[in-house]
Amino acid sequence: MPHPLMRWRCDNQSTNGIGRPAARRAAAGESKSLLAKEFGIDRETVYSYLRAEPAVAVTG
């Protein structure tokens, strides 16, 4: 189980509009490293968003 403060940070960033777009674009095949750089987050954070958003629909 993640540290309570880290869990809050992930939840907070998800609601600030970073998590869902990053997860959606990563699910569509974009490079996780490039997404992390663009959003100013760690690459592992992109992976955590993918785990937190399991039902991200890829449309297009």
Rank of each mutant, 00 (worst) to 15 (best):
M1D: 11
P2S: 13
H3I: 03
P4F: 05
L5G: 08
L5W: 06
M6L: 14
M6A: 14
R7S: 11
R7V: 06
R7E: 10
W8T: 06
W8Q: 15
N12W: 08
N12S: 12
Q13R: 10
Q13V: 04
S14M: 11
N16G: 13
N16D: 09
N16H: 10
N16E: 13
G17L: 08
G17H: 03
I18M: 04
G19R: 05
R20L: 14
R20A: 14
P21N: 05
A22S: 04
A22G: 03
A22W: 00
A22M: 11
R24M: 14
R25C: 00
R25L: 10
A26D: 07
A26Y: 09
A26M: 02
A27L: 07
A28M: 03
G29A: 01
E30S: 12
E30H: 09
S31L: 07
S31W: 08
S31C: 08
K32G: 09
K32D: 00
S33I: 04
L34H: 13
L35D: 09
A36G: 00
A36D: 04
E38H: 09
E38T: 04
F39S: 04
F39W: 08
F39I: 05
G40T: 12
G40I: 09
I41C: 06
I41T: 03
I41D: 07
D42V: 05
R43C: 10
E44K: 15
E44Q: 12
E44V: 02
T45C: 08
T45E: 14
V46S: 05
V46Q: 11
Y47M: 11
Y47H: 10
S48V: 08
Y49A: 07
Y49L: 02
L50M: 15
L50R: 10
R51F: 11
E53A: 01
P54M: 04
P54G: 04
V56K: 08
V56S: 15
V56A: 15
A57V: 08
V58N: 01
T59D: 14
T59H: 02
G60F: 08
G60E: 11
